[in-house]
Amino acid sequence: MRHALTGVFRAALLICIPVVLLGCAQAVDRRLEVPADQVTRAAVPGVPLIKQADFHCGPASLAMVMQWSGLDVTQSEIAAQSFSPGAEGTYLADMLGSARRRGQLAVPVTGFQNLLDEIAAGHPVIVFQNLGLNFALKWHYAVAVGYDLEARRIILHSGELDRMVMPLRLFERTWRRGDYWALVVLPPGELPAAAGEWDVLRAAEALERAGQLRAAQEAYAAGAARWPDHWLWQFGLGNTRYGRGDLQGARRAFLWARRLAPDVPEIRQNLAQVNRELGV
């Protein structure tokens, strides 16, 4: 094979690149780098501290974030929809699911930069940490509510320790062992600051699928305001309005979607169906 003989140097290059790229030999501080214009310190006001019941750090974290957003819900109510007694814990998927069943927009985010951006935007962020080591696991959910880059620390609301101030380096290690998993839970009309469009779109659609049509409709409308050129927001808006019996509203959304993307067959089909039902 000719391609295989392109030279020792190139082969060496190709071998070296993945090592750097996949972060195997990375110093810890590299992971904590932020752009020069990053807000130095930020804090999210009004997040309640909730003492967790045994093993209920997941439900307690969700309760803190949902109460912050104005929802009247308790730790034990959330636990009934998310906690797995057999595992003595709460699975990541159940964290998402229980937030969505309460009509909240739940969007996973990852990476240090996105975490800081969300906090700076005034959104508390649920973070998944391993406070122990890989051979001695101690999984934990906490709510990140503030940070200070100068003092190199992050402020967490932890159901176990109340308000916890953690050095950034230590936080990075515990969060890395949790695979940098984080979750933004917001009222559906408010969008995460750092999540990408497709992630928000999927989170809104998950609300629709969970039967939370009103919440889904709000999320689609907010998405349409932020990303006005993308037809899928109008398409989701049309489908949720249709699901709620608002045929005229659905028609308006599908017409708008068709203006944005004249040739998408899905839009045409749904518009045709709504027109038929309206007798237009």
């Binding site: 659609e205 489908n239 998408v264 749904n270 169906q273």
Partner: peptide, 21 residues
């Protein structure tokens, strides 16, 4: 569209947002 335009008009059902995404 070129491929599917002709077939969609005949069917009468709403296509889901999830499938489109």
């Amino acid at each position: 569209t070129l491929a599917t335009q002709t077939t969609t008009a005949a069917r009468a059902e709403m296509l889901s947002t999830g499938a489109a995404i």
